[in-house]
Amino acid sequence: MRHAILITAYTDFFHLIDLTNSFNEDFDIYIHIDKNIYVSPICLKILQSFPRVKSAEQVFHVNWGGRKHVDAILWLCKQALSLSTDAEYFHLISGTDLLVKDLQQFCNFFDKRKGTNFLEYFLLPYQGWESGGLNRLQYKHPLDQLNIKELHDRNVYNRFVNWQITSRRTRPLPNYPIYGGSSWWSLTRDTVNYIYQNYNQNGWYDRLEDTFIPEEMFIQTLLLNSPLKESIVPYNLRYIQWEHKHGSIPAILDEEDIPKILHSCALFARKTDSRISKKLINYFNNNRSSNL
């Protein structure tokens, strides 16, 4: 079985090169690198030189929390559908993910589960999200125009959102169920093709303009309101710690997480940092190599 790996990247390009080199000839790799980020021509040339890498481009300026991340995902889907005509499964990961199973285990897992989609989802409102998550849609969040990692833009954004809240200026919600979940997934070719052909079903893509972190609702809501609903297992095969660690939420993983990852069913772990997670990365890189 052939697989397509879709990667959205924005940092730690040495790890990205290492991650790309984790896959063999059964995998085609597509990479979108945030256009806001400087990547050296040498690094980009190295990535594009790998035979498995079918595309590695900087197409969209992706501000954190904005809809451009959805655009980058759709671009990756289009590239993979067009170029990997024999790929049966598509896997969306970030450039800070780590492959934690050897490739034979990876391929065997999907050989035994053909036609099953793996996507975390839950119905909104959801108690694990602030205000149940519907505030992401009810208020305008102009994050494609404002980069809230910059102090000035963050202050402008906070004032604008607070003004909407205090003046009770809300947008109507769609008249169909809204679902949320992790951005990362493993889906069949037919499902990815359905996403690309129907991404604006009922105006859903349009409605995500000025929505907060729309990639955590886009795929879930589209698929859970589709004929493909029954094919979805609500687990995305990723090990993620939603807690503060090493200055990050989700946590930047380290060697203390190795036993928990090994006891999970995860195929990927995130997120990692090539310095902080060095022992963790080396452990799984060496373990995969010994099992091939």
Rank of each mutant, 00 (worst) to 15 (best):
R189E: 02
L74E: 01
S264Q: 03
V100F: 06
Y199F: 14
D102S: 12
L146G: 06
H61W: 06
H91L: 05
L228E: 03
M1G: 09
Y235M: 08
V62P: 02
H152D: 12
I7G: 07
E215P: 00
R2I: 03
I213F: 09
S55T: 13
L83M: 12
Q48K: 15
D206E: 10
A251P: 01
D210T: 09
P172S: 15
E230C: 10
T20H: 11
Y199C: 09
L292P: 01
V161R: 15
H15L: 08
T191L: 11
L119A: 08
N236Q: 07
I46A: 14
R52E: 13
R207W: 08
G133F: 03
S183C: 10
N117D: 14
N117F: 05
K114F: 08
K35A: 11
D71V: 05
D34S: 06
I261N: 00
Y89N: 02
Y121A: 12
L253E: 01
S231Q: 13
E230W: 04
N287L: 14
S49A: 15
L173E: 03
Y194K: 10
E215C: 05
Q220L: 12
L228M: 12
D71G: 06
H32R: 08
L143N: 02
Y176N: 13
F109M: 06
R270P: 01
K45D: 15
R159P: 00
L99S: 10
I73L: 10
R154Y: 15
T8N: 11
W75G: 04
